[in-house]
Nucleic acid binder design. Sequence first.
DNA 1: CGCGTTTGACCAGCGC
DNA 2: GCGCTGGTCAAACGCG
Length: 250
Amino acid sequence: MSSPAAGESSEVVNNPTTPNSSISSSSNEGEEGEDGGEEEEEQDEEKNTNNRLKAKKTKGQKRQREPRFAFMTKSEVDHLDDGYRWRKYGQKAVKNSPYPRSYYRCTSAGCGVKKRVERSSDDTSIVVTTYEGQHTHPSPITPRSGGSLLSGGGIGHLFADPAFRDHHQSVLPLHHHYNQQHHHQQQQQQLQNAYMYNSAPSLNITTTTTTSATSAASFLRDNGLLQDMVTCQMMGKVVEPKEEEEEQRF
DNA sequence: CGCGTTTGACCAGCGC
DNA sequence: GCGCTGGTCAAACGCG
């Protein structure tokens, strides 16, 4: 911390020079008709007395996936202070990247929002943050002036917070809602390509179509991820609208 | 003392 | 069927 962060200009980080950043995604199976994916966590209270490793995932069915939203931030600190309290519950070394991936979970009771933070292997100055789920509570931290937002829980204020932007030169959404089958690079590439059409590496984020931004904004808002300032051109990279429709089941 | 981080182990899904 | 990788748990540890 205490990073000067003064020398860098607010350039955009839309350049996916790292095809293997494992930031790809894909629509998940719209199976679970779960509507309140919250109580699923405590469905098995029985803590297997035998195995220390209880079933993290219900063996019968796969763990439902909540909508995810990933974005890149150009920052020196990997853990962004978005106003919520996060508890780190794991760290894993990912392939194709010398940097480990950290797993965070919202400490608020009843809030199962998770966050994944990893540093781009290509651009060490870029941090990829993936939010999963949406907060069911307001931010524990009182937003600063100019904000007045934040009430349903989301990363909206995060973007709007001048202080945040000060620390993170640029923020751009990558995608949302991915699937688990992104293990292979090939697949990742394919997926990335799918998104790339929307944001060519050479394209400047600011040149992104407004439609995309709007769509992303809608999605985020629907999911409570974004409360305000969604129309900012920061929304550079978004997924195809078709996928969006899939997620707009909320 | 409470809360958050670290770290090793385990499990499930997926590809080969 | 086997191996790899990602994701999560939980005990231990550290700090305020």
